[in-house]
Design a protein around this nucleic acid. Structure first.
Length: 221
DNA sequence: CTCCCGATAT
DNA sequence: ATATCAGGAG
């Protein structure tokens, strides 16, 4: 993996998605944290549908702990994994009020201590809400990075993050993160990736292999 | 590693 | 019917 090849990949996805951005609706760091927590194993679109009403009903940490656990569970039910997430949100809000005066902290070490907030969510909050360069490795970033050879197939998400940070200039981390997500979500999809019309096909071993398989299937029929 | 889990696409 | 979706905790 040469630096020139990395540059070519970054420039190509930059051309495809010049203004890739966070698609989770939010108006402050607290709302962003709640939205990202809710987004685990769920599409952004579904999260936005739920938070549209949720953020109208709940504004501050106090609001989330003022209701019963069961009521909050019902308010986020459509997201899935709602029992874990409702419990985490209430624990998160109590901890914010106890230790941080109800505000979302800025440091990575503080963020990952929050209930329901892991490394990926912490990186999203840091980069999107506080403008700290970070590469949050979600399912799309992991899949795309491995397909394009930016990481190895057996790498953990942490290893993928470290390899991307090493290969991508720091000032491009956050934007690259968003472009990799857009590329994975709208083009290099998990089930039906658009290999046939992919500008990175010649740089993608899996894409070529995948096209052969498709041709084979067609010829078998 | 398993479990949590409803909505959507294929 | 099955895979997948901006993961995290035990």
């Amino acid at each position: 993996m040469t630096g020139k090849r990395v540059r070519h990949i970054l420039d190509t996805i930059a051309g495809m998605y010049p203004d890739a951005h966070c698609e989770l609706h939010h108006s402050n760091p607290f709302e962003l944290t709640i939205a990202v927590l809710l987004s685990a194993q769920c599409t952004d679109e579904t999260v936005n549908k739920v938070t549209a009403d949720l953020f109208r009903k709940y504004n501050k940490p106090e609001d989330y702990i003022a209701v019963s656990l069961e009521e909050l569970e019902q308010d986020i039910r459509r997201i899935g994994l709602f029992r874990n997430k409702a419990k985490n949100i209430q624990s998160l809000c109590r901890l914010l009020l106890e230790k941080y005066d109800g505000e979302i902290p800025r440091k990575h070490e503080q963020l990952v201590e929050l209930p329901g907030v892991g490394r990926k969510t912490a990186n999203v909050v840091m980069s999107n809400a506080f403008d700290v360069p970070a590469i949050a490795v979600d399912t799309h970033v992991e899949r795309v990075s491995k397909r394009l050879g930016l990481a190895d197939p057996d790498d953990t998400v942490l290893q993928v993050e470290q390899k991307l940070m090493k290969k991508v200039p720091r000032e491009e981390w956050t934007q690259t993160h968003h472009r990799l997500i857009f590329f994975g979500r709208y083009h290099c999809k998990a089930q039906n990736p658009g290999c046939g019309v992919c500008p990175l096909l010649d740089k993608c071993g899996e894409g070529k292999l995948r096209l052969k398989t498709v041709v084979k299937r067609k010829s078998i029929k």
